[in-house]
Amino acid sequence: MEALYKKANILYIPALALFALFVAYPFVDGIRIAFTNWNGFSRRFSYVGLRNFVRLFKDENVRASFWNTLLYGFGSTFFQQVLGLSLALFLDKKFPGRGITRTVVYLPVLISAVIMGYMWYYLLQYDGALNDIVALAGGEKRLWLSSAASAKSFILGVNTLQYCGISMVIYMAGLQNIAPMYYEAARIEGAGEWQVFRRVTVPLLYPAFVTSITINLIGGLKLFDIIKALTGGGPGYTTNSLATLIHSSYFASQMAGFAAANGLALFVLILAITLSLQAIFRKIEVQS
């Protein structure tokens, strides 16, 4: 059988060819650019050795963006799991309005993140919807995107709300796939609500956790559109992720070489995180 399957390998050649042309080749070319002082558009440039990589470790903005990337990645993944799982548990039982709630929570997933960012902006403006409420309550209007902490919370929050539907839907299906007999068996053994959740629900939801966390984490670490639409990386440089920093150093600051080095760093970061995540998942799987 194995020999036969080997013959089927031909079936992935078209896909690989496409990857070679549109991903691998530009990727390698990008590595070359990382060793230059190219400004991104001129025909003139020279090779500058490791200078761009040295700068990665020295530049304050890279450091800030690095931590922000982790914050956006792990932060939204965490909140999406909490929200997604709570919503799934909440919607697991039938009640009037259940279908609509599910529809509404999942809806933002399908909206372009740039447009979602613009829509939220109407709320967060100084004369925006959120401040109308503040004013109505007698408070002083606030600049929601003006401090680093507040702006980052909104980026995290908007991203979490927009995509928590993915986790919800995955967990809902996971819950439905758990046969009632497991619950019954646990109850017969005298387990309480919490124990049923820990001993039955969580382990049986394991595949759902893996998928949901992986999808959310990769998305969060690459976060770009929402930041661009809400804060553009500002005020100053405070809310940049590595992805938006790459963009602005490429195009605005005209440091294409530095941006390419930055791109490699982001790639390595995401790769390292997802690989270790997979290793952890595998370990858990083996243990249980």
Partner: peptide
């Protein structure tokens, strides 16, 4: 799998030239 993790931005200009 690793292609999924390539940030599109790091490829933008070489891809455009291609």
């Amino acid at each position: 799998l690793s292609i999924m993790m390539v940030p599109a931005l790091s490829l933008l200009v070489p891809l455009y030239v291609l």
